[in-house]
Structure formats: structure tokens, C-alpha cells
Simulated assay, not measured.
Amino acid sequence: MIMKDQPRDLIELTIPAKADYVGVVRLAISGIATRMGFSYDDIEDLKLAVAEACTNAVHHAYRGEGGEISICCNLYVDRLEIEIIDQGYSFDVSAVEAKTGPINGRIPYHALRERGLGLYLMKSLMDRVEIKGDNGVVVTLTKYIRRDEVEADVDSPTETRSH
């Protein structure tokens, strides 16, 4: 019997730290989330948040020097936890968060990424985001499965009862 706090399965993927492979990760996350029963909107949120975390690792962790990014997906009964792990340069999360601030229409779009927009985006799309950076960076993204709130024995809209 699997406990609710124990992962049912672990899926690991390692990619070169190159932008060309971020799409592969998005496809894998989409497949995993679909199999787990996530809604379309939640799958899109997962793909976007994971792509942002991987893109950050590609551009900031290795600074063009090459390396690898590991993606570990822990599948729980009620959630998906995804760790994006690099062994590149670490950063001060609180300093990036402090720069994020409100989005100002006068700031050029290309400058928004440098202000921590990716971190803000991940936090907006996920239920929980944890970032640890000692030797490299580990970003943990958690998304809970939202099951239908309607009970299974409730009539569907196409079924009617005679009263």
C-alpha cells in the first residue's frame, strides 16, 4: 500500500544544458501530468513553469560553459513534485525576489526577465516553489491534482429525470 506522503513513482530525465532540449522536458512533463489525471490548464501551467526553470538553468547556471540539467518527477497520489537540478552557479533567491516588484509598462519587455519575472511566473503557476542554491541550484515545483468537485453519482447535464 502506498502512503499519501510517499511517491508512487520516480521518473528522472537528464538533458544537456542547452535551450534545444527544453522542449523535450515540456513533452515529458505533459505526458506524465496527463497520465496522472491533471486538467488541461494545469498541464499547461506545469509545462510553462518547468520550461522557465530549465531555461533559467540553461542561461544562468552554466553561463554558456555547458553542463547537465536533471529533472526528477516524484509522482504522488495527490500531486506532482518536479525537481530541476543543475550543478552550475548559484544565486541569491531573496535578491532576485527583491528586484521583481510590480511590473511597470515603461520597462522594456526584454528587461523583465532580468527582474525575476520567471520566478514570479513559477510561483503564480505552481502550488509551491522551493529554491535551494549551495552547489548549483535545485528548484522544486509542486502542483496538486484538482479532482472534479462533483460527485460521481450526480446526473450529467445530458441525463434528465422524470418527476
Score class of each variant (00 low, 15 high):
D41G: 11
F38P: 09
V139R: 04
I84E: 04
I107C: 06
G23Q: 04
C54Q: 01
D41R: 11
T100K: 11
K132M: 09
V50P: 02
R113K: 13
S90K: 09
C73M: 13
Y109Q: 11
L80S: 08
D134K: 12
V139N: 07
I107A: 01
C73H: 10
Y40E: 14
I82K: 05
A49F: 03
T140G: 01
D86A: 10
E65P: 01
N74W: 00
R115N: 10
S90A: 14
E65H: 07
H60P: 06
S94G: 11
A53K: 01
L27A: 14
G64D: 09
A98S: 12
Y89T: 11
T55F: 06
H110T: 11
D45T: 05
H110K: 15
I32H: 08
P16Y: 03
K99S: 13
E68T: 15
P16A: 08
I131K: 00
K143A: 12
I84H: 04
L141K: 03
R8K: 14
L27N: 12
E12T: 14
Q87D: 15
S30D: 08
V24F: 10
G105H: 10
C72L: 07
E65M: 07
V24S: 11
K47P: 02
G64M: 07
G88I: 06
I131S: 00
R106P: 02
L48S: 13
T100S: 15
I11F: 06
M122W: 01
D134W: 03
C54G: 00
D86G: 11
L112E: 05
H110Q: 14
R63K: 09
E12W: 04
V25L: 06
G133S: 14
H60Y: 14
G66W: 04
A33W: 02
D5G: 02
R115F: 07
Y76G: 10
A51K: 06
C73D: 06
A111P: 00
E114R: 09
R8S: 14
D92I: 00
E68S: 15
R128I: 09
T55D: 13
A49P: 03
D5Q: 08
Y144T: 12
A19W: 00
L125P: 10
I131G: 00
I84M: 04
H110A: 14
G64N: 08
E83V: 00
V138Y: 05
T55N: 13
C54T: 02
E97L: 15
A111H: 07
H59V: 09
V93Q: 07
G31T: 08
R63I: 03
L46F: 04
I107E: 00
P7S: 03
I15D: 03
L27H: 09
V137Y: 00
A28K: 12
I145M: 10
G31A: 06
L80H: 07
S90G: 13
G101N: 12
V138N: 12
G136Y: 05
R63S: 04
M122D: 02
Y89C: 09
L48N: 11
D86Q: 07
E114F: 06
V50K: 02
L75W: 01
R115K: 15
A95L: 14
V138A: 05
R128K: 15
D45Y: 09
R35A: 10
K143H: 07
D78V: 05
I84T: 15
G64W: 04
K123E: 06
I107R: 02
A49C: 05
R115V: 06
Y120K: 14
S70D: 11
P7D: 05
L125N: 05
S124H: 06
L121V: 11
N74R: 08
P102C: 08
P102Q: 12
